[in-house]
Amino acid sequence: MKIIVINGPNLNLLGKREPTVYGNNTLEDLENYIKNEFKEKIDVEFFQSNYEGAIIDMLHRANDEFDGVVINPGAFTHYSYAIHDAIRSIKTKVVEVHISNIHQREEFRQKSVTAASCIGQISGFGFYGYILGINAILNFSE
Rank of each mutant, 00 (worst) to 15 (best):
A75F: 05
H78A: 07
E18D: 14
H60V: 10
F127W: 05
N50T: 08
E28W: 04
N25E: 13
R88C: 14
M1E: 13
S123N: 14
S117G: 12
K41G: 14
F47H: 08
L27I: 13
G74C: 11
A86W: 01
G15R: 04
I42P: 02
I137N: 00
N12G: 08
G68S: 07
G74A: 15
C118L: 03
I119F: 10
D85K: 13
A136N: 06
I55G: 01
V5W: 03
V69M: 04
N10F: 06
E18H: 10
R17L: 15
K41W: 09
S117N: 11
F66I: 01
I71S: 00
I55A: 03
F47A: 09
G53H: 10
Y22S: 09
T26Q: 07
G53Q: 13
G129W: 01
L132H: 05
Q121F: 04
G133K: 00
N36D: 12
S123E: 03
L11E: 00
K111R: 13
T20F: 12
N32L: 15
L138W: 04
G120V: 04
Q121L: 11
L138R: 08
I102W: 02
F108G: 07
A82L: 11
N139W: 05
S49K: 11
G15V: 08
C118Q: 01
A115R: 02
H103N: 13
K111N: 14
